[in-house]
């Protein structure tokens, strides 16, 4: 059976998958650069932690986490309506820092020391793991469906050229807000789950480095690709754990990988796979 260590690693994998797929919806599907995803993760964690500590059950606490994160997400989404690309990237970074800056100073949120003694889920370790992995799988299935739906079609056009999308009757603003709400809601869920897993949350767990780690998973997997991002999230979470030797080099690895991918293959793993598969697809047509 699974030991405590394996349970712990798999739980982290599930949480990272939730985070990465959520970011993929915002940045990949809808083309809105978001470099502060950890702020929504943190919002979900804090909201769920506070709810749980004041007696709400596990599921209501998670719901609180999702709701608060999504609300912040919509606010940031509103910002994205006014600014584009580079500016948006910097603004979302700013949101991450503001989040930290505010949380660190509030005694009600535990200040620098964070919130501790967060109750467990009541499901037991294995049950909790199932809840986490179940959520991750559900989000993955939803992401695949989303991409194929008309909403995904609209997102494609917005990511490509939002002004032209407007001319075709698409309410770009509304769809962007939906993308933000979905992606940040997923982060909020991840945060709530994390709070109940770690039982302690501190501001540093939601800093800019975490945002970059999540971004690395999306980028390496291939921005916009569900399978790629899933694979990258799993790999990048497991690698430092599986190879203890490199765990001290984890951040160097993330940074280097992101750099390499952007420099060599901006389409990430998914891009490489597509390139590799291309000659295979051509063959049938050649056959008379």
């Amino acid at each position: 059976m699974l030991g405590a260590y394996e349970l712990s690693v798999l739980t982290l994998v599930g949480i990272n998958v939730l985070l990465a797929l959520g970011l993929n919806m915002i940045t990949g599907f809808c083309g809105q650069i978001s470099l502060g995803h950890a702020a929504f993760y943190g919002t979900g964690a804090y909201a769920a932690a506070l709810a749980s500590k004041s007696g709400a059950g596990f599921v209501p606490a998670l719901a609180a986490g999702v709701a608060c994160a999504a609300m912040l997400g919509v606010i940031v989404g509103l910002a994205s309506l006014r600014v584009r690309a580079d500016f948006l990237a910097i603004a979302t970074m700013g949101v991450n820092f503001l989040f930290l800056g505010v949380v660190r100073q509030q005694d009600a949120l535990g200040g620098e020391l964070g919130i501790s003694q967060i109750p467990g889920s009541g499901l037991g370790d294995f049950g909790f793991l199932l809840a986490v992995l179940g959520s991750a799988v559900a989000l993955f299935v939803f992401s695949i469906y989303l991409k194929r739906s008309w909403m995904g079609f609209v997102f494609d056009s917005i990511a490509d050229d939002e002004d032209t999308a407007q001319v075709l009757g698409i309410d770009v603003a509304r769809f962007k807000l939906v993308a933000f709400a979905l992606g940040t809601g997923a982060a909020g869920l991840a945060g709530g789950l994390y709070a109940h897993y770690a039982h302690i949350i501190v501001p540093d767990a939601f800093g800019f480095t975490v945002s970059i780690t999540i971004l690395a998973m999306v980028v390496v997997g291939g921005i916009g690709s569900n399978w790629g991002v899933l694979a990258a999230a799993v790999l990048l979470t497991l690698m430092p754990e599986a190879l203890r030797v490199i765990s001290d080099y984890k951040l160097l690895l993330y940074g280097g990988l992101v750099l390499l991918v952007m420099r060599v293959s901006p389409g990430g793993l998914a891009g490489l796979v597509r390139l590799a598969l291309r000659p295979l697809r051509r063959a049938p047509r050649g056959v008379a």
Binding site: A85, A89, I212, G255, G256, L259, P266
Partner: peptide, 27 residues
């Protein structure tokens, strides 16, 4: 080499480089 890519590519590459540099200094 990546100036012709969409703007997020050099931005993210730069972030990756920065993180890598920081880690190198530490190591």
């Amino acid at each position: 080499p990546i100036l012709d890519q969409p703007p997020y590519v050099p931005l993210i590459a730069s972030i990756g480089l920065f993180i890598a540099l920081q880690e190198l200094f530490r190591l």
